[in-house]
Design a binder for these strands. Structure first.
Lengths: 170, 170
DNA sequence: TAAGATTGATCCCTCAATCTTG
DNA sequence: CAAGATTGAGGGATCAATCTTA
């Protein structure tokens, strides 16, 4: 205990930069999370829902959801279990590959999302984007985009390439 | 299923900005996390260890760790349980307030951290800071700092104000 | 053999309730 | 009563193993 240690390596600017990055999202998540945590939806649930809403025919394969969200396939399985149990999404067997499932947004899922998004947008504005000038925000987003592409190429993976029909599910 | 929905509210730039923020940290965490995950240290464990290392006398109160890290006091209790079990930190009863504990870094904890940090710094450099030009990084950090201060004032809380002795623990 | 999905075990965190001390 | 810390219950994520299909 109580070793006298050179604090230099612990104050490396790259380390503090990472610390800042984590503290910031943690804080933003904490502030904005209440919006969907109240109606019993987790952050991952919301992430999946909005990705479905933005996809053609409101559907994606489980695998594509996994790679887009950087979650394990196991994790996605459980998210969809929850959403299906809540009636917000549903699995549809893939016509061209019998190993695979598409996940589609239900009407109720769409309604819930539509109800939720304005509040969330306001909250994000309140706690994140409005804290910066347009120039500052632009600088931040440019940096983020570049880092994101560096650590996670394929963030937009599976936007309907192989299996999923380019036709409505039903 | 398959409602035709206006995708406009779902593509609100503030929402995509938040999505980008989350994707980025998630990606960076995933890339750099192996450095400490391998020797069986979680992200929160590391966060606590390095905060201790940076504090005077390598010690902080549980409560202060909680507010600095934005974790619940319960969460901090369990982190310290793990670190104590691993011999990397130890509780010391607070002399001036018998409800409170200081947590101090052990010699072994200091060694482990010293061993870990260079690898981590290299990994952060590899996956985060080196992806940007100095100007871009500067813009990113400026924005982050501003948002962080907005959502989480008191990030530096408890840097020895009340209880903790301004003297060595032992 | 590999890809898509699921299951069981386990880890980490939070909330609510509780105990002790100020 | 308020503050510091701990405990039990429960949610959410991962890994490794497994099953089915390509």
């Amino acid at each position: 205990m109580l070793v006298r240690m050179p604090s230099e390596p612990f104050d490396d600017p790259r380390l503090t930069a990472m610390g800042l990055l984590f503290e910031t999202v943690h804080g933003v998540g904490h502030r904005c999370g209440d919006v969907f945590r109240v109606p019993g939806i987790s952050g991952s649930d919301f992430d999946v829902l909005i990705r479905l809403a933005r996809s053609p025919y409101h559907s994606l394969r489980l695998t594509d959801l996994a790679s887009q969200t950087s979650m394990s396939t196991s994790g996605i399985t459980r998210v969809i279990d929850r959403l299906e149990r809540a009636g917000l999404a549903e699995r549809v067997a893939c016509a061209t590959d019998r190993r695979s499932f598409l996940v589609g947004l239900t009407d109720e899922g769409g309604r819930r999302l539509t109800k939720l998004v304005p509040d969330l947008t306001a909250s994000v504005d309140r706690w994140f984007t409005s804290a910066l000038s347009p120039e500052e925000l632009d600088g931040l987003l440019t940096g983020l985009r570049k880092v994101r592409d560096h650590v996670h190429p394929g963030a937009t993976a599976g936007a309907h390439d192989g299996c999923p029909a380019d036709e409505p599910l039903l």
